[in-house]
Design a protein around this nucleic acid. Structure first.
Lengths: 232, 232
DNA sequence: GCAAAAGTGTTAACTTTACACCCATGT
DNA sequence: ACATGGGTGTAAAGTTAACACTTTTGC
């Protein structure tokens, strides 16, 4: 390694695939760029990493700037470093995904690079700026894989939810229909869903029971269970 | 994003966890550093990424410099970007792992940063330079996870191998004993092991049948099967 | 009363686990 | 002949998959 490193220009960035679930649809948070290159295109939210900033920290900052949210679980999934991925120079980008509850009350802030921020369904995305379409696809695939061995979906739902909502979310992510009875049996068998003494309101049909996640039980189950990890 | 990017100094690097299997033990390829910082420490092989070089390309270059090998399957697994991970400045590093067949004929080249390169068992690693111990652990865990849903282990074995060797390799990676009959049944059921008309030689006990991987069948099975991927 | 979604069990198929002995070879 | 690892099958347990009707509620 070069042993004389002076001051560096920042040349890496973070891009975020921020998933949300609304109206039965899986969505991601996009910005509409206000500058060249790719002016007016839709893009993933992202920014350069500051010199005194860790990369997780940078990812959290970007998410916070857009949504006002803190302490959201983010997961790094891939780093993209093709030589010409960015027209303005050599920038490699570390991509993260996050799962958040969409709160229609909360206003989205566009941030410095954007005209506006918006939730967009994952199903009819236009071509995105830079290599962001590829980044999105990679992130979506990681999310799918992860969901099939770890039931992380609850991070996308409101605090109280019905089993049907949970199932619709799984179906939206995995892109296939699931059997209602088998799905419920399995989810309940994990033991981290807590049935509430409360039902859906304002529906024009039989109201469903509401559930919430018991995070304590959840982490107990899914830390020991997945615990194949080395620690030497 | 900063819209005026001039010429950049390189500030990202690649580090590689290169796995091999020899004498019933899982090993990784390490270098002994010849310069400060961490002179004489063991470290993962790595280098800065050149300005006109993609990151996969850089990873392949590093592996090639050490082993003389080309066209080895490498997999990016995580990017490490803590502010102070490198004493000489802000360097983020993209980590890859590779699985290779150890060939005791082939000489290892140390490369420019190293006194020498060596294979070291994963079981009694000393503390490594920089954050390389953490990088190694992360990579080893990814390998384990991956192996439990995709039988990638054959990349570590010689072309012809016995089922016992394959099992020992699984046991070394997963760090647990497996049942011989169940293991064989399962591996053979995949259908990508081809039995050869040949046996082990020079052993002082009953010689075992040799097998080889049928890569065609392997990729057919494990590309359609895992094929939950989106392509929009 | 009807439209819409909630809620509920059983069976068959398949997968995983547990388990022990004889066989072939070299010395 | 003995030591070493090679090679083999079956039964029980657990998991997943397929499948259809009754209940509740609002309109």
């Amino acid at each position: 390694m070069k042993e004389q490193l002076v001051k560096f220009e920042s040349e890496f960035s973070i891009d975020c695939v921020i998933f949300g679930f609304e109206a039965g649809e899986l969505k991601i948070l996009l910005i509409e760029r206000k500058n060249e290159p790719f002016m007016d295109w839709l893009a993933l939210p992202g920014d350069l990493v500051e010199n005194d900033e860790g990369i997780e920290e940078a990812a959290e900052r970007i998410l916070h700037q857009l949504t006002g949210l803190h302490d959201v679980h983010m997961e790094q999934f891939h780093t993209f470093g093709a030589v010409n991925r960015h027209p303005r120079g050599r920038i490699i980008t570390v991509a993260y995904y996050a799962l958040i509850r969409i709160d229609s009350q909360r206003e989205l802030k566009a941030g410095q690079f954007a005209k506006r921020a918006l939730w967009h369904s994952v199903n009819d995305l236009p071509k995105l700026a830079f290599d962001h379409t590829e980044i999105f696809k990679t992130g979506f695939n990681k999310l799918r894989r992860r969901l099939s061995y770890q039931p992380i979906a609850y991070e996308l739902l409101p605090e109280k939810f019905t089993l049907t909502q949970l199932q619709q979310l799984y179906e939206a992510i995995l892109n296939k229909k699931l059997d209602k009875r088998n799905f419920r049996k399995k989810m309940l068998s994990y033991g981290f869903l807590k049935e509430l003494d409360e039902k859906q309101k304002n529906v024009s049909f039989r109201a469903a029971k509401l559930y919430k996640f018991d995070r304590r039980k959840y982490s107990k189950i899914f830390q020991s269970e997945m615990g194949v990890d080395v620690d030497i």
